[in-house]
């Protein structure tokens, strides 16, 4: 985990740009000067692989849902929704707090800052009123666990790369 932190620390402002890469900022760009446009083009080329992808929710294939509201997604990831509509227990998988994918997912899909998720989980864990989500180390492990666990929910950079899980559309 130390590796993540040192990368995070060394390139933090850069990192922030990556966090926001999936958010639409084009209108701001249109108003900017020529110099800024050059910077934008440079950034676009550099960041292209990230800009191509938005984070996506994934669930186990046996889960009937194909879409979910942002509210319901927040309830899942703040551990306040114990059951799916078909009464299967919700099992939540997450990456470590400082994982770049986790940070982007929290902000762009849930509309929460990663530290807020941590606060919610810690309050539940240390007051005995709830449990923590199951933490996995990598995106690959996330996919494997979601594919093999009934009622599971997690997230990936791009769902189309993983046919073994179902992508959930967030409305």
């Amino acid at each position: 985990m130390d590796g993540y932190y040192s990368r995070l620390n060394n390139g933090y402002p850069w990192h922030r740009a990556l966090d926001n890469a999936a958010a639409p900022t084009c209108s701001a760009i249109n108003r900017s000067s020529g110099r800024l446009k050059k910077v934008f083009i440079c950034l676009t080329v550099t960041l292209w692989p990230w800009m191509l992808t938005a984070q996506e929710l994934i669930v186990n294939k046996a889960t009937p849902n194909t879409q979910i509201s942002q509210n319901q997604a927040r309830l899942c990831f703040t551990m306040r929704l114990p059951l799916w509509e078909n009464n299967v227990p919700v099992k939540v998988f997450v990456l470590p707090d400082n994982h770049p994918l986790h940070r982007k997912f929290a902000k762009n899909i849930l509309g929460l800052f990663p530290y807020q998720l941590r606060q919610v989980w810690d309050r539940q864990i240390f007051s005995g009123t709830g449990q923590a989500p199951i933490m996995v180390a990598t995106e690959q492990e996330m996919v494997e666990r979601v594919a093999s666990t009934l009622g599971s929910i997690g997230y990936v950079e791009s769902g189309s790369s993983y046919p073994q899980v179902r992508t959930l559309e967030v409305r």
Partner: peptide, 10 residues
Amino acid sequence: ASLLINPQIL
């Protein structure tokens, strides 16, 4: 320690 006996009982 916490034990989730079923989705309704912790």
